[in-house]
Each structure stands twice: as structure tokens, then as C-alpha cells.
Write a protein that binds this DNA or RNA. Structure first.
Lengths: 246, 246
DNA sequence: TTCCAAACTTGATCTGGGTCAAGGCCCCCG
DNA sequence: CGGGGGCCTTGACCCAGATCAAGTTTGGAA
């Protein structure tokens, strides 16, 4: 498989190769990665890692969804990051995990042992550079989400979340521009509530409202069709392209 | 001045030397930095940079406070970052600013021309490494703030903000542990509201309430005394040390 | 096939914080 | 010294979303 091929194509065994670290890796670097690579699987609901745990690997999501969550003593929880396939997990240069990492669905991760990964990073400027870029992307996403949490209404919050999932889906599948988007919601209402700073009842009500208003179509509880992405983005209060890429 | 000295001491001309980029720089690297360094001053309220502007420098705050803000079409605004003295501004490797940068008080920044700074970064692994570390710090702070925005009550939000400012003050001045902390609020009630996802009326009411309950003492509108930091942190709902450092 | 529990929906009611409105304080400028 | 404009406070009222409480749907295990 040609490793310099388009960003958009899937790599058969491990998405990290082209999406995260190794878009421009040479074959000897790939060999080094290959040596320290392994896979881990988790069931839905399993905790990958507790906040403060020693974290001896970095990696990326191959399939499924993981989330980063913070919990207060009294049980209030806030999801601070959603890890979709191809997203990177880990903090090169940091020892501990900063948040709980939870498998929201069944999950497969492609991991690299951290120590040798960091050595590779030190030897290979473009890997270090790519990591900085990814971290900046995450920072942008986090700040985008601060606007959602701080200033948007419940309806706008739901629409924003649906837009993120829909857009990622479109990106991954390289469907054409503005046609309808179809996907299965990978989150329970409760998980959505924790991500949006709402209660699960409010999430349920607002999804029903969006359905009644034909912004989305629902089959069952999870299967969503977005007939018009522009309409959804409008509902999300998005002026920009959604801040997903730059 | 010995540049390897403690992180905590002020450097006479430019804090970036020891706080941000150059804690471990050798003299030739410092010379290169010196050549591309310049200062910019702004008055309170001035916009340093609009979202989307081409940003041809990076830098750090020398004195005063700047904020990163996002604004929706209808005028709702959310501050997504608070830049206190010694904080870094800029996105190495990115062309545009992602947010409006506003001088919240009178502001002095120490800037480096971006192109040569990036070259220095490429030549100097520990600078690149330090930048990644700083970006991870910002990411942690942003995620910490997501919990504040999504799940905390108005009173907890105010207490959290006061704690951040108080703690930063303590860190900068290296005062002793748990004695009382005194500082001047560097933000208007409106700016606090924009940071906390509240209205300015609610901010005012909650500050009055904290004052009535002796969590803080107020002289005038801005001068704050925190008689007991632990009490303040408790009000903030902070289980941890506040997530400021790791 | 039936049963059960998890996930979800919907209704009724309550409340924290928003909104609107009316001042108060204080500094700067004339 | 008096007036005006930021900035802040406080009160009265309202409403989006939380809370409490039933149900309903679904899918998998026995």
C-alpha cells in the first residue's frame, strides 16, 4: 500500500499511519513504529484509563468511540473530549492521564509504547511537528466547544453535536457535498447530555423537537438522517464552517 | 542574569525567556531570539487581532491581560482563553488567528516574528518540545474550563474564576502557602460574565453573595481579599488542586 | 415466546439564572 | 463645583431547562 496516497483513503490495518502521525513517514520510520505497535480492544462502558493513572502508551482510535470525562465529587460529570476513529489519544511527554478515558461503544485502539514512541518523535522532526499540529487541532475543538457549553441553547447544542458526528461521517466516507447524511448515533442520550452539559431528559426532548421540525429524521432511537446539512448547521447557530478544519 | 535559574523569578526584560520558550536556551539561541524580538503595547479594549487575520508573530504577555473570544452572529460572546502575564500567544505552523484577541486591560506583549521563530523552532528540538508542552497545558486548562461551563453553578463559576486569578497571583509573587491572598480584579463584571457563560447581573449578584458570606472581602469594586483559599476552592467545587499545573 | 432491564420518551412542576428596569457610585471633563 | 458617562448593584418578574415521576420501546437472555 502506498503510504503517501491521499489522506482520505483508509489504510487496511491502522489508520494512524495516514491520519495522525505518519502521513509522511519513510519506510524505516514505519518499521520502527511497526515494532512498538499493538492493539487493544474494549467493550462499551469499559474504562480505558482513570484520571491520574500512569499512561504508558499513546495511540489512536481504530473503531468505536471513546470519551474523555471529568467527574466532580458529587457525581456531576462533563465529557471534555470525544474521540472518533482516527483521533489521537495520549500526551507525549506527560506521565499521567489527565482525565478518565471511557469506551463509549465497543472500541479498538492502535497503541504505541510510549517511551520508544517519544524517542522516535525526538529523532523525527516531522512527527513532532505533526503532534503539535494535532494538539492545536484539539485545542481549537475544545475552545469551539466552550462556546457551545457557555452560550448555546439546548436545541443549538444538540444540533452542534449532530453536526460534528455527521460531518465526521461525511469526511470519513468522502460522500459528496450537500446531499443528505445518514448515520447511527454512537452515543446514548446520557452520554450526549454529559457532553453538552444538559440532562438526558432535555436531550430527548430536543431530539424529538428537531424530528418534529424535520431537521432530522429518526428511525428507531439511533438511526439518523439529515436531509439538509445547511439547515442543521443553521440550527446549531454556526456562522463558520463549524470550525472543524483550518 | 543566569537563565537557568528558578522558574519562579522574574526576568528583567522579557518573561518569555524563562517561562515560555527559553528556559534552557543557549546563548546563541538567545541571540537569534533577541534579533527577532519586539514589543507591542495596547490600550484596554483594543483588539490585538481579529479571528481569521493573518498572524505574523507569536509572543507572550509581559503585563496586563488579554483574552481570546468567540462571537456568534447575534452577538453572544464567549471568552475561550484568558492570557495572563507570561502566557504564550500564537499558533506556530498556523497562518490565521482562530479567535479574536482583545486587550482586556492595558497590555504589553513581547513578540517574535513568526517565520524566523518557526525556523528557530525547527533547529532547536527543546523549543519545539516546550511548545508542545505549553499547548498541552492550554488544552488541559480549556478542558478544565469545559467542566466549569457545563456543570458548575453560577456561584461555583465565580469562585473558580477568583481561584484562578488568586492562584496565578500567588504563583507569580511566590507568596507563602495558605495565608490570605490579596489582588485587584483585572476584569470588568461583563468580561467575567463572558468568560463564565453568565450575564453581568448574575456575576454581580454572586460576588455580592460571596462577600456577604465572607468567602471574599471587597474594597471598592475591584480590590479582593481572600481570607481562606481552601474555603474559596471548596466554593469552587474543586476536588483537585484546581488543575493548574501537572 | 416471554421476560426483564436498559434506554428512551413524555408530562407536570420547580427553580436558577436571564431579562428588563431603575437607580447608585465614582471618576473625568468642563 | 456640577454634570455626564462608565461601571456596578439591586429589585421584580419570567422562562429554559432541571427535577421528579410515570410510562413505553427494544433487544437480548432464558
Amino acid at each position: 500500500m502506498n503510504l503517501t496516497q491521499s489522506f482520505s483513503q483508509e489504510c487496511s490495518d491502522c489508520p494512524i499511519r495516514h491520519r495522525a502521525v505518519c502521513a509522511r513517514c519513510e519506510s524505516d520510520e514505519l518499521e520502527r513504529l511497526e515494532e512498538i505497535k499493538y492493539y487493544r480492544s474494549f467493550e462499551a462502558g469499559q474504562t480505558v484509563m482513570w484520571s491520574g493513572d500512569k499512561m504508558d502508551f499513546v495511540g489512536s482510535v481504530v473503531s468505536g468511540i471513546a470519551s474523555l470525562t471529568q467527574t466532580m465529587e458529587d457525581g456531576r460529570t462533563q465529557m471534555v473530549g470525544l474521540l472518533l476513529p482516527s483521533d489521537f489519544v495520549g500526551r507525549p511527554g506527560r506521565d499521567g492521564a489527565a482525565y478518565d478515558v471511557v469506551a463509549t461503544t465497543d472500541l479498538v485502539m492502535c497503541c504505541f509504547r510510549k517511551k520508544p514512541f517519544e524517542e522516535l518523535m525526538n529523532d523525527t522532526p516531522h512527527v513532532a511537528h505533526r503532534l503539535l499540529e494535532m494538539t492545536l487541532d484539539e485545542l481549537d475543538a475544545a475552545r469551539e466547544w466552550m462556546l457551545v457549553l457557555g452560550r448555546k441553547t439546548a436545541r443549538e447544542k444538540i444540533a452542534s453535536l449532530l453536526a460534528i458526528i455527521a460531518r465526521r461521517d461525511v469526511t470519513l466516507n468522502m460522500q459528496t457535498g450537500n446531499s443528505q447524511v445518514v448515520f447511527d448515533l454512537p452515543l446514548t442520550r446520557e452520554a450526549m447530555a454529559d457532553y453538552l452539559g444538559l440532562t438526558l431528559e432535555t436531550v430527548s426532548r430536543q431530539i424529538s423537537a428537531l424530528k418534529k421540525d424535520k431537521v432530522i429524521l429518526l428511525e428507531g432511537k439511533r438511526h439518523v438522517t439529515v436531509p439538509d446539512m445547511d439547515r442543521l448547521l443553521e440550527e446549531a447557530g454556526d456562522d463558520s464552517d463549524g470550525g472543524m478544519l483550518n
